[in-house]
Computed example of a mutant assay.
Amino acid sequence: MPENQRPAAPHPQNAAGERILDARSLRGLAHPLRIRILKSLRHDGPATASQLGDRLGESSGATSYHLRQLATHGFVEDDPARGKGRERWWKAVHNGTSFADDLHTSSDPEVRGAANLFLHEIAGIHTQELSTWLATMHDWPEPWSTSGDLSDFTLNLTAAQLHELNEKLHAVVETYRAAAPESDAAPGAEAAQVRVHLHSFPRAHQAR
């Protein structure tokens, strides 16, 4: 096989099917619209550039450009089974994203800037999702209207214990992912797509 026809190396991912971001792929993803496009494809399913434009309030030209950039970095790909004629459908390649360990300690200003943009955008999406739930929770029938959770806890932990806590919480979530139906399957009468946010971080203690 000629050199330029060799299949691309698979992008690294973890056991949960999440893409592990390195410095290059992080820079390719760290744009507000690209993050929102990828979120929409993961949560709401495959779409065309025009459909994504309608979903996100953007022009189809903008979504088309950023879809191509996401494809260059291996985050999205064609969904030929859905395409009709010249209509091009896109789908997300991975279930989610996670940081490679060295991204948290990088001294490269460009990498740190991309990481900050990405994390702040994700935090904004979480805030928006939570606000939407609080505004619409009473529109859901029982028991959905009372099944959500908005809790916080303060624990005294070492860094190692915090890491262990996060690993255990992720493992619990993965047991429910494994038991869930395929994402392409129609939701059952008793099932709904559920968003789970896990935020854990140290804070400086304020002296009295």
Rank of each mutant, 00 (worst) to 15 (best):
N95A: 05
G124Q: 10
T97S: 08
D184S: 08
V194L: 09
S98W: 09
W140S: 11
H104P: 00
G124C: 05
P109S: 02
W144T: 11
T97M: 06
A115F: 12
T127L: 15
T127D: 12
P109A: 04
H104N: 14
V172L: 14
D108C: 03
N166A: 14
I125M: 12
N166I: 07
H163W: 09
V196E: 08
F201R: 10
P141D: 08
P181V: 08
E121H: 10
E129V: 10
L150P: 06
L117T: 11
P143N: 02
P187R: 08
A135G: 11
A123P: 03
G148K: 04
A135Q: 13
V196K: 02
H138V: 11
A171F: 07
T136F: 06
H163Y: 06
S200F: 05
D102K: 03
T97P: 00
Q128E: 14
T132D: 15
E167G: 12
L198T: 03
N166M: 09
A92D: 01
M137K: 15
A185W: 06
E174I: 02
N156S: 14
E174F: 03
S200Q: 07
A180D: 04
D184P: 00
L119V: 10
L150N: 14
I122Q: 15
S183V: 13
E110C: 00
G148W: 08
A100K: 12
E174Y: 11
Q193F: 15
V173W: 05
V172G: 05
A186R: 09
S145M: 13
D102I: 03
F99T: 00
N156T: 13
L103V: 09
W133E: 12
E190I: 01
A185H: 11
L157Q: 02
V172M: 07
T146H: 10
A191Y: 13
S151D: 15
E167N: 09
H104S: 11
I125W: 08
T136K: 08
A186K: 12
A123I: 06
P143Q: 02
S183N: 11
S147V: 02
E121I: 04
L198A: 08
D102M: 04
W144C: 02
I125A: 10
E142S: 15
S131F: 09
A114W: 03
L134V: 10
H138I: 13
D139L: 13
A171I: 05
A180Q: 02
S131P: 01
